[in-house]
Design a protein around this nucleic acid. Structure first.
Lengths: 190, 190
DNA sequence: CCTCGAAATCTAGCGGCGCTAGGAACGAGA
DNA sequence: TCTCGTTCCTAGCGCCGCTAGATTTCGAGG
């Protein structure tokens, strides 16, 4: 009776262990270093155990992505609500977004580059993804009104995403970070 | 004497064959389907022959990327020089860029997502990359002057890149393409 | 307390990957 | 014709994601 409860708890615990291990390993050595064999070794179980929790490696990465997205949403919300006015909020959110991408590159990659299977721009998208996008919507709304809101937010997001990825891959000059953000905010500041 | 010339020609031919095979296979079935074994089969040589032409699979992908970038540069130049004025040129280049990303997704991916080893924002970058970026510079220059030119161009490019990649991965609403470009051009149109 | 059956877990292995060592086949020059 | 360097292939290494089938574990019923 209560033993099954305990087992349930243990299973959930182990599942968290898997996700955390994948995330830590990815942050430390990149996603290429995240293999099912290494994950199995870290959690001290054999490889097939992973497959009783997740359908495959992609599902593990998706779980990391969703978890990371929830954290991103929190950061964005804090940036937005802590700002004095609409323009300041936009700047704060932009900085928070690019900081996140820079400081947790593997996490960012999991969310927005890998994990292509995740449903995104649909109602079926996991809640954390919708929350993160919702933060962007809310920071753009005061500057735009409700008419072009969706489109304007998508473009603003795309610009941030482009800056983050090109920067990460060394495609942009290493020193222009602040200037680029300033230009972007100037463009989208009303 | 002349036999060595012939061999040289044959080698160059085979190298082109490899790059073309990789490119075609990637466009047809995605980069995951491009394996050294399959490439060897297509060119009708054994696997190790590939390694006498390229240091590894990454180098083959980089060759595809450079080739694709040259084509992108041509398209961008045509778009830019065929436009009536500066704003029209910006619009034409933006459309050409996103069209390229949409119609040749594997090629675009090779240039801007994979092939991380390619030097980019340095003088050591391959000529085609500099040409493509140069086209962006030239289309932004008339609207900005020479002061913020570099930064403005990087941000414009990042926005296009963000739109292209988020769109490709299904992260944006499928129908808003034109509207998004219109918003972006409105933002960067002066 | 013992047995039994189901659930949990492991061992072993499949096919495929990028890449490379070592030997066979070939062709040019003596 | 023989030699020797180049070219190319066969075979295989260590790794990958994933899975089938044997084995162990452990609570439930007698």
């Amino acid at each position: 009776m209560s033993t099954s409860k305990r087992r349930e708890r243990e299973l959930a615990e182990r599942e968290r262990l898997i996700v955390t291990a994948a995330r830590d390993l990815a942050e430390a050595q990149g996603w290429d270093a995240v293999t099912t064999r290494r994950l199995a070794e870290i959690i001290e179980y054999s490889q097939p155990v992973l497959y009783s929790h997740f359908k495959g490696k992609d599902a593990i990465m998706a779980a990391v992505a969703v978890e990371g997205c929830a954290e991103l949403a929190v950061l964005l919300r804090a940036a937005r609500t802590g700002a004095a006015d609409g323009v300041a909020a936009l700047a704060a959110v932009a900085h928070a977004y690019t900081d996140f991408a820079e400081q947790r590159p593997a996490l960012y990659e999991a969310i927005f580059a890998l994990a292509v299977g995740l449903p995104f721009a649909t109602p079926a998208a996991p809640a954390p993804l919708q929350e993160a996008f919702g933060e962007l919507l809310e920071v753009v709304r005061p500057l735009v009104g409700d008419d072009d809101l969706g489109v304007r937010t998508e473009v603003f997001w795309a610009s941030l995403h482009g800056l983050a990825t090109l920067m990460r891959d060394g495609r942009l000059l290493p020193d222009g970070r602040e200037q680029r953000l300033a230009v972007l905010l100037d463009r989208f500041g009303d």
